[in-house]
Design a protein around this nucleic acid. Structure first.
Lengths: 231, 231
DNA sequence: CGCCAGATTGATACACATCAATTCTCGTGG
DNA sequence: CCACGAGAATTGATGTGTATCAATCTGGCG
């Protein structure tokens, strides 16, 4: 779960709570989903499933990054989420996927049959609970993303995005962008040019720095946080 | 569930499914949530809970309309969803609400203690399943909403919004707007002025008509659907 | 009647999109 | 090893959709 939340808000909401990685009352430390999955691999830019496909399976990311996206007839694209390790996707209660899922990088996944998960959930409340947690976190992320798309300026969007990334890959002030500029643009509701210009501007101001486009250093996260603003 | 999906896509995904108001396979026709709730009422514009409040309860709408929203320091507001009969809200897996909930109209709600629902879900998989369905539908709606905010023009947003409303209140080509223009604007990521202008333009073209602002007739839903486009 | 909040309409400004070159990176083949 | 080409990123010049600022209009209510 997670799906790239923006603004400090999400982090704020879950100060020490953190995930409940283990089942509420599980004897061992086993995630209730672990036994049900089958391994699957996709290489960079492969489609995992298409919007409109019948939704027989859902997946969990083991490594790599996945994007959920939709393209309009005339080619406009929106990315709803970038998913990374631990995130569940493809769970829908209608018969069909609403968004396509594509591999941003080479990815390894666990693939679950919806029917089998449903079945197993009847016996194990912990399993249902687990899926519920994953979904509710994604919903919170989506809501934060709505604020970003509906009400934030380009600079604020970029700042929120970068801060989200550092939080998820807690490696100090350094961020590895798994996705290209176009992906970032389509996630943030901007154009590539605006993303590029805005990042260059932040660089000129000394707030961030980067030699290659895919590896960014946050020089003044304070300034970024001020931009991201949150609520 | 639902939360005002935009574009025809959601309706397409759930053509006749509609809500599942009653429990999936319950012996009687009892929703597993029904026994757990306590009645609650809020009048128009009252706050049900604030963003940041500890999330002890969740709610289901019995009648009226609720908005989920967040306001930035400098007063920009985004509405994440309008919720109506049957919709669940306030379920979060972090300790705190991420968005405020407010009554758009006078509303009657069922109020549930999170702790008690959790408890009951351990015994009844059907209950967990029920909540899961409600959340997953909301997540799908939120994703559609992201496409709307990230990539659609003002006219497309309005068209999608109106079509969503008719679908939910299936009363032919007539739509009752429970919310004021500002609410519509904050849901669609626009300003009141743009909403007003865009609706006037649609009216001039004979696509919609309205005498009072809160009661709209769809004269040519075909034209609206062409605008809404979907994927 | 007169007030006030909400809605509409008008004039102007601006943030971001669009169109158009470069520049950079890297894989490929001569 | 270097020339070449292609896709991605950056930078520049210009356009435009929507925001902003500013009246005016409308309907409900004290």
């Amino acid at each position: 779960m997670y799906a790239m939340t923006n603004s400090a808000s999400t982090a704020m909401r879950a100060p020490m709570a953190m995930r409940l990685q283990t089942a509420p009352a599980a004897p061992a430390n086993v995630d209730p989903l672990d036994r049900l999955g089958a391994a699957a691999k996709f290489e960079k830019n492969r489609t995992i499933y298409f919007e409109g496909d019948e939704a027989e399976h859902c997946y969990r990311v083991k490594s790599g990054t996945v994007r959920l996206c939709k393209v309009t007839e005339d080619g406009r694209r929106q990315i709803a989420a970038f998913l990374t390790e631990g995130d569940l996707f493809g769970w829908t209660d209608h018969g069909f996927y609403g968004f396509s899922a594509e591999a941003v990088t080479d990815v390894t996944l666990e693939k679950f049959s919806r029917a089998r998960v449903e079945e197993a959930a009847k016996a194990s409340p912990a399993l249902g609970r687990r899926v519920l947690t994953l979904l509710s976190t994604q919903l919170a992320s989506a809501h934060d993303h709505l604020l970003l798309l509906g009400r934030m300026t380009a600079a604020e969007r970029i700042a929120s995005f970068l801060l989200d990334l550092v939080r998820r890959q807690h490696k100090g002030g350094s961020v590895a962008l798994a996705m290209c500029r176009k992906d970032v643009a389509d996630y943030l509701g901007l154009t590539v040019e605006t993303v590029s210009r805005t990042m260059s501007a932040l660089k000129r101001k000394g707030i961030i720095s980067f030699a290659e486009p895919e590896n960014v250093q946050l020089k003044q996260s304070g300034a970024l946080e001020r931009l991201a603003m949150a609520a």
